[in-house]
Design a protein around this nucleic acid. Sequence first.
DNA 1: TTGTAGGCGTTATCAA
DNA 2: TTGATAACGCCTACAA
Lengths: 331, 331
Amino acid sequence: MRKRATAKEVAEAAGVSKWTVIRAFTPGASITEASRQKVLQAAEALNYSPNLLARSLATNVTHQVAVFVDDFANPHKLPVLEMLTERLQAEGLLTVLININRHFDHVHALINADQRQFDAVILFGTAFREETLGDRRLGPDFPPMFVLARDSQIPGVPAIACNAELALSQVVDYLFDKGYRRPGFMTGARTLSTALGRRHHYANFWRRKGVESVIELNADRYSADAGAEAARAYLSATPPPSRVDVLMCENDILALGAMDTARSEFGCRVPQDLAVVGFDNIELGATPTYGLTTYEQPTYEMINTIVEMITGARAVEAVTLPGHLVPRLSA
Amino acid sequence: MRKRATAKEVAEAAGVSKWTVIRAFTPGASITEASRQKVLQAAEALNYSPNLLARSLATNVTHQVAVFVDDFANPHKLPVLEMLTERLQAEGLLTVLININRHFDHVHALINADQRQFDAVILFGTAFREETLGDRRLGPDFPPMFVLARDSQIPGVPAIACNAELALSQVVDYLFDKGYRRPGFMTGARTLSTALGRRHHYANFWRRKGVESVIELNADRYSADAGAEAARAYLSATPPPSRVDVLMCENDILALGAMDTARSEFGCRVPQDLAVVGFDNIELGATPTYGLTTYEQPTYEMINTIVEMITGARAVEAVTLPGHLVPRLSA
DNA sequence: TTGTAGGCGTTATCAA
DNA sequence: TTGATAACGCCTACAA
């Protein structure tokens, strides 16, 4: 197994010192065009390119960003990952996708991110409580962290997210104008602060409209299955006259599951018997089958904001951005 | 900004040499329990952990695997990515997710993977023609490459995929037994060899059943939208009596789009007027709304096979694995 | 078991 | 502009 050519080898082949080779590969270094060409030719012949590992060790910059994800059931993650990787790559940054699960938890992943000297860590839709760290400290040498599409409970770790208060006020205004008066809300994971936040704002704005009670349904995770199950439990326990007239779900995938069950198992017409609202605007919600009314987060703006913070083009601070309502037929 | 503690600093604090520190962090190194404890205490106090970058430079092993993806429209990618990252992480390998697009092509990504010394490169659902490399060589020092869930056109790069011939024979047997006789096939991207392969086998097995003609529809990419559009074009150009009675789509997301359009825009009952079959078995296909008959690839086995090859637990060679038919109501 | 040299391939800095 | 010395933090190999 032949090894990669090194700057030293190229130097010998080109008859210069290895530092001249380095300069030929350093944009804006002072080197004559003659030496530069000599080096580039030798490099080409030896198939040389700089070893980024060694460079990172010397510069303390890896150009790698870790992205933590702990929920792969929501199809919405995929287009966001696409945008995120593309935007990062445009800045010369690669994405290390880290699957947070019970075998590989946040602490484990954070230590790893530290040891590998990632330039930044993005908690995408994930968050952990500070206590989880135990007595382990995240030193000042630690990669900067950001929370994407969630609020942050960790002091010093800014969240870049959709403005939930604005979002839910828009949703409730819309629903109220449409004439709905008996609202329900389905959460995915009961403990998540984002869930609590959305539910809280939802209930709050209904209250301002004079509607005091919001029925709460709980799915235990974020998937169509879980949404279906939660809807089934509610609908089979509640006779039609006392049912909610509009069900907002914490995200689209729950909403699709709920809508499926309501229609096929309980014969509900949507939106006449039960209106449904989601959150995220996933592709399948737009199909004529579902026609899901939903709320779209400003995904690109959020990603762009984080990337600018990572590259230093922008001050690091928590930011919430406005999204927009996507009205369709389901509500 | 304080820097990370180094082995040398820990050594001074513990009153040993830095090599002893290294040994304390090397499983199976010869070191007395006493020194070991001394070192670990000092390390704890200084919040030390080995710098993986430096280790990689010295050992030529990064424990990072690049995964190339060029199609984020198919929701099926997500559960596969979940499994893949989990399985890799279980082996101590991190996943670098690389978005192949027109701003960042295969060659670019491969050079990068080489420079960063990734332990392996997985082409997930992506492939490129060897000519794309131009005169650039992939030296023997280059990270081993694997093609996942696709066939490989590159000599020396093994494909680990579902057995397409078996899959389509099972599908056609099933459809024939159900009484269908006028088959259609919808491809996503016309140029892809996988598409050609599936279509080829599909047509082939129908021929063996005595059905000579398979109508071909073409979507220009893999998304519900594209599937809907292709279906729309076909259905509006073809009066009911001359339409196919069963439409197999190259993957589920196309199938869902096609089914939506057939039902809502052309009033087709599925499967009575038009039966639909997909490929992948994505979560939403299982909902009562779609009830999509589909074919499930042996995802876990494929992933496991690749990971074993990467870790050296298994000989490197092309492998095709059997999947299984998932019959539902749509066909 | 422990300490010592030398090397991994780059970058930073200074001298020529 | 170019060459040289030192450093990045670790590992391998060898000697004590």
